[in-house]
């Protein structure tokens, strides 16, 4: 019953619309729309909650209590913050490129939302089951570089411009090891369909067969979301807030929430590619598959948050060197060894 909760809701909706006599095409369109709206609401609520989680994690790591006044245990703190941010004025700098300046925070959520459409949250629970799922995700995710740059450039401020340059350089550099790292898994599975990749991990998670690939992916992914220790983009001690320097109120909040939505994307992706997706470990299948998926995802998010409060920021030259001189060669070596290993196993007849 719980296992098929969301699948059941979709079927019920389909049957309901079919019973009223809605044509099949419009029926499907409505179901798809409901799915996408559900995902959007899910992302926004999660992003809100993750801000709270980040503050709590930070507080406990620094021996503080963190937000504890608004709502039970301070749970409504970020809701109150968003309420404040909405009521604030969005100041547009005099020399800004107004249209681009205002479009950028609006667009920042679009790639993230499009990416979530292909993520399978549980058994049969991908909104769209796409043959080239992983590749689609990487392609769409690469668009966000442009949107960050739009914001930084249009602000027409020195700090924003330096931040925008760093965004472009960093995100382009780390996209390469990210893709090359995932290639090891794709080679083993022989498919870019996320459901196939999860199905291939029924017995062994790829974290055990591709540990190096996971480390490369995780490092590159943290850099892609501009999180510490790779948060040079918004390094507040150097360039205030990077591309977001000139943004205030809800426009700033959009970037802020998008960062947390992107953390969700990379952690969901790591769960799918390396931690068996919605498969239950140790045969604990009485717990629904989507609960397992979220448990794994939040465990990874927790690690990302811990990283931020554990490590200092690295330098710009170290950032570039780490990507091009460490991660990329390592990823290429991993692909090479994976290929040889696959051939050896085939020769042994496994």
């Amino acid at each position: 019953m719980l296992e098929n909760l969301f699948v059941g809701i979709a079927q019920w909706l389909r049957a309901l619309l079919g019973g009223v006599g809605v044509p099949v095409e419009i029926n499907e369109a409505i179901v798809m729309l409901v799915k996408l709206v559900a995902i959007l609401v899910f992302i926004l609520i999660n992003a809100l909650w993750l801000v709270y989680m980040e503050r709590k994690v930070a507080a406990y790591m620094q021996a503080r209590i963190g937000p504890n006044r608004v709502g039970p245990k301070g749970l409504l703190q970020t809701t109150a913050d968003i309420g404040k941010l909405i009521s604030k004025e969005i100041i547009i700098p005099k020399k800004a490129d107004i249209a681009v300046f205002l479009i950028s925070p609006v667009l920042i959520f679009v790639p993230t939302l499009m990416v979530f459409a292909v993520i399978p949250f549980g058994k049969n629970m991908a909104a769209i089951d796409m043959n080239i799922g992983v590749f689609y995700l990487l392609a769409i995710a690469s668009l966000s570089t442009m949107i960050f740059w739009m914001g930084g450039w249009a602000s027409n401020s020195k700090y924003s411009l330096i931040g925008a340059m760093r965004v472009v350089a960093q995100m382009v550099s780390y996209e390469l090891p990210l893709v090359l790292g995932l290639l090891g898994v794709i080679m083993i599975v022989g498919s870019m369909n996320m459901s196939d990749i999860i199905a291939a991990q029924e017995h062994t998670w790829f974290i055990f067969t591709q540990p190096v690939a996971f480390l490369i992916y995780f490092a590159a992914a943290v850099a892609e979301t501009n999180r510490c220790p790779f948060d040079l983009v918004e390094g507040e001690s150097e360039i205030i807030a990077g591309p977001y320097t000139e943004y205030g109120g809800m426009a700033f909040a959009m970037y802020f929430l998008a960062e947390y939505a992107n953390i969700m994307v990379i952690c969901a992706m790591a769960t799918i590619m390396f931690f068996g997706g919605w498969h239950a470990p140790f045969g604990l299948t009485f717990i629904p598959s989507w609960v397992w998926f979220f448990l794994k995802m939040y465990a990874l998010i927790f690690i990302v948050m811990q990283l931020r409060w554990t490590y200092p920021r690295i330098r710009v030259d170290q950032l570039m060197g780490f990507s091009w001189k460490v991660l990329v060669p390592l990823a290429l070596a991993n692909i090479f060894i994976t290929g040889i290993g696959m051939k050896i196993y085939q020769a042994m007849g496994w």
Binding site: I132, F135, Y136, A139, S142, M146, M165, V168, V172
Partner: peptide
């Protein structure tokens, strides 16, 4: 042609435009 569509987005929108951006900056 879903693969080609993804390549189009990744290579042209994601990379070629970024190259122009580098040029501008």
């Amino acid at each position: 042609a879903d693969f080609l569509a993804a390549v189009q987005v990744l290579v042209y929108a994601g990379a070629v435009c970024i190259m122009v951006v580098f040029g501008i900056m």
